[in-house]
Write a protein that binds this DNA or RNA. Sequence first.
DNA 1: TTGATTTACGGGTATATGCCCATAAATTTG
DNA 2: CAAATTTATGGGCATATACCCGTAAATCAA
Lengths: 173, 173
Amino acid sequence: MAGHKDLSAETQRAPDTTPAGAYPNAGRCNGTALRKAMRRVSQLYDSVLAPCGLKSTQRSLLIHIARAGTPTMGELSAALVLDRSALGHNLKPLERDGLVALVPDVQDKRSRRVVLTPLGKAKLDASMALWAQAQARFEAVFGHDEAAALRASLERIASPEFAEAFSASDICE
Amino acid sequence: MAGHKDLSAETQRAPDTTPAGAYPNAGRCNGTALRKAMRRVSQLYDSVLAPCGLKSTQRSLLIHIARAGTPTMGELSAALVLDRSALGHNLKPLERDGLVALVPDVQDKRSRRVVLTPLGKAKLDASMALWAQAQARFEAVFGHDEAAALRASLERIASPEFAEAFSASDICE
DNA sequence: TTGATTTACGGGTATATGCCCATAAATTTG
DNA sequence: CAAATTTATGGGCATATACCCGTAAATCAA
């Protein structure tokens, strides 16, 4: 195939011609870079996790619940940097499948606590080996230490302090 | 909390004590870290972009189209590390609002090319100042050089070569 | 050329995520 | 204690993202 897509002098209709100088900062958006990498990693991890019937998003949810004990929706959504409504929506398939249950809090009747059912714990445990395999393969390609450094950066960005500092930069920019 | 409980009895019903040793690798998932950071950054950038009526996802789409000229759906989805169907769905609101248009390709009648309308270009241009502000605030908090290094890592992960290497690690792990 | 295969999409479905607003419960005020 | 306010969720809506399958067009094979 001589079908090189040397886009510079495009075949017929190149009205835009993408002036080489247009949007020179286009490739520098941190949000875009994060999104692309996130999609890629989701796809890679999900492909490995597939046999256990959990997606990486769901596994992440379950493991946060397991570690938090019996968190309220609010606590869980904060830990996940996830909108409260989004958390509610994300829990529905898991609740429907019997992996988690929502129980009203006795102290604060507004709150509902999320609990991992035995079935949910079993699913989570069953996913561990596959997750470890995906993680190992990721780090075999990306580098173990580099991955640790990357996670440190990402966790800093995800932290509430970061959001606070970003918001604070509003008034003094 | 005085008193060790021996683990044999512990198996009963651990209410919420989160046995300290459970899921020791829980915080090391690269996918989870990416997702949390992505949500945070989306929220921060979107809050700044709000006045222009574009979300960061949409802006990213428009700018990719602008730079690619008149890409096919396939080219665009590859550039965005986005599933083809997802791209189609993401384009719908933009098409509905007249920011982009889909035109059948003359060479290959299977393909449709995505074009930025004048209105789309105007919207994109109008978003530049707000994006620059969000970007500047992000980097004021995170660090300019650190951000560049982070993007380099993320772009490596998002690259097709990375996916290929990850897949290849399947057979020799 | 004809038939098999590959490629590019679109539709349908399910999950993921966020915003706005309404409601109920807890907390703070007067 | 009653009223105002804040907090924890849920419902409705819109967008984001992926997978599977079907169809049409291009390409490859005989």
